[in-house]
Amino acid sequence: MKVRSGGASLTGVCDYVAAAASASGFDDRTSHACQLAVFEAVENIFQHGYRGDGGEIHLTAQSAPGALTVEIVDRAPAFDPTRYPVDPSASLREAQVGGRGLLMIRRVMDDISYERRGRQNILRLTKNRSFTGV
């Protein structure tokens, strides 16, 4: 699916991932975790990649029994989220919630890969186990 920044389109991301997670046979909790991870990845691209200046993202989901892979492709400047440092600890003094989206993605997904191909960022998020909590 094609995603542009804006409310309805972002809700559509969750619907798209929910349908794919259902096709993979995942339960509601795992489906929700996948929706959250993909949503955070998409939001990060719009906010930090395209810097709130529009842009377009392509999502492709592949479902197999017990496995879901979502490929996220954008044309923002190169950014490898697998190499970005994330601090899982939180104190009220320091908590800015920045980087929390990346932490959520890493905690939900079982495999994350990134590739820069030409002018495209290609992020693949794979879930192949049920989510039962942090």
Partner: peptide
């Protein structure tokens, strides 16, 4: 609850 836990908050 899952979202809060996943974010470590």
């Amino acid at each position: 609850s899952d979202a809060i836990d996943l974010a470590g908050l």
